[in-house]
Simulated assay, not measured.
Amino acid sequence: MYADDVPALAGPLRRSWSNDPTAVLRNEWPTEDGWLAGLSRERRTAIRRYARKIAADPTLEVREGWGRTDVDPHELAALINRHRARLGIPRTDRRTGVAGAFLAEFVRRDDVRLLTYRAADGALLAANTLLDHPSSTVLQHWAARSPAEGGRHNLYFDCYLRCVRHLVSAGREELTSGRGLMAVKASLGFRARELHTVAVPAPAVGVR
């Protein structure tokens, strides 16, 4: 939880500690061009170049939409879990692998946008889920094949451009994007927000 919320769970036999921060981008612009203008010239130029190349690539199919039902959730789960395993799962990350059964329901929600990148032969190269909310939009999942597996370079930055495009066009307050690659996200205008874990005795939360 965020640091401001920790005191609400203070009490006997309870303990809290800080975790790696999460990345947050506050919406301060009327258009995506305003966001781009605040980045370094090198980063801004590169993102625009990547977007043009991806849009013009006839061997790449890019699709995005809310409540999608046209994607095999088990194919999507396999991509996400393979991506996480390749990057290495931190010792403190106790999450299980993402299940296809979960994604089957998750991506059908009308507040979840699924973005997919496929090769001409239909192979799923990369995917992103964006969980929308009137105040805070969450870049929930990002996964991609490595170039050695047939993946493409710079889809990551195209994904962020599309996420920011929704952030500003929908008028959301902020975009959060997790705890990894903080230096790269800082180059995209994100700032670190402190996170804490609070351990509470089971009886205090109604668990026996």
Rank of each mutant, 00 (worst) to 15 (best):
Y2C: 10
A3E: 15
V6Y: 01
L9S: 13
A10P: 02
G11W: 07
P12R: 13
R14E: 06
S16F: 02
W17F: 15
S18P: 10
A23T: 07
V24A: 12
P30L: 08
T31M: 01
D33I: 03
G34Q: 11
W35R: 10
A37K: 09
A37W: 01
S40P: 03
R43N: 12
A46S: 15
I47T: 10
R48I: 06
R49Y: 05
R49G: 14
Y50G: 07
A55Y: 03
D57Y: 03
D57M: 08
L60Y: 02
E61T: 15
G67E: 05
R68F: 06
R68W: 06
T69P: 01
T69A: 15
P73T: 04
I80W: 10
N81H: 14
H83S: 15
A85D: 09
A85V: 08
L87Y: 12
I89D: 05
R91V: 09
R91T: 04
T92M: 02
R94L: 12
R94Y: 06
R95N: 14
V98N: 03
A99C: 00
A99S: 14
V107R: 02
D110M: 06
V112S: 10
L114Y: 09
T116C: 02
T116Y: 03
R118S: 09
R118H: 09
A119K: 08
A120K: 13
G122I: 04
G122M: 03
G122H: 08
G122D: 01
L124V: 07
L125M: 07
L125E: 05
A126F: 03
A127D: 06
N128P: 00
N128L: 10
L131V: 13
H133N: 15
P134F: 03
Q140C: 05
H141Y: 15
W142D: 06
A144L: 00
R145A: 09
S146Q: 13
P147W: 00
A148L: 14
G150I: 04
G151A: 04
R152D: 00
R152L: 14
L155D: 10
C159K: 01
C163N: 15
C163H: 10
C163P: 01
V164G: 09
R165M: 02
A170E: 14
G171E: 03
R172P: 02
E173L: 12
E173Q: 14
S177L: 01
R179S: 10
G180P: 00
L181D: 11
S187Q: 15
L188C: 11
G189D: 04
R191H: 11
R193M: 09
R193Y: 02
E194P: 08
L195P: 10
L195V: 11
T197L: 01
T197V: 12
A199W: 02
A199R: 13
V200G: 08
A204P: 01
V205R: 11
G206V: 05
